[in-house]
Amino acid sequence: MKFGVVISEGPYTHQAADTAYHFVKSAIAKGHEVPRVFFYHDGVNVASRLSVPPQDERHIQNNWTALAKDHGVDLVVCIAAAQRRGMLDDNEARRQGKDASNIAEGFRISGLGQLIEMGIQTDRLVTFGD
């Protein structure tokens, strides 16, 4: 079965990105497909490659990047929500005249249409938020 996942809260403050991670790992291990995870609201902050948690804590962004790499999960960060919160990829940083970008490997910035498309193309949609 195809599952779509929405993450709508930021890392560390809320558990949403952790629960979603365990859920997606289990779903894939059980033979389901998770073609896409959509990051919205403060969830876009999960994609920051500048996150440096203490070494004895889980690294939420690295975990997601690894999932994308190992299982081809498309990690989509909402562009409107991302721009508000200072999350930019190289293209957007250039376009907006900013001196840095901060989107981690495995994530890509795109529009809200990707969320709707995910709802249309998957069998189940699960939202993790607060």
Binding site: Y40, H41, A80, A81, L112, G113, I116, G119
Partner: peptide, 19 residues
């Protein structure tokens, strides 16, 4: 909180998908 506004933004974009 921003949820109401960002919900509305999804609705507006989603309208183009004719669901």
């Amino acid at each position: 909180t921003i949820y109401a506004l960002e919900s509305l933004e999804v609705v507006l974009i989603g309208a183009a998908f004719e669901q």
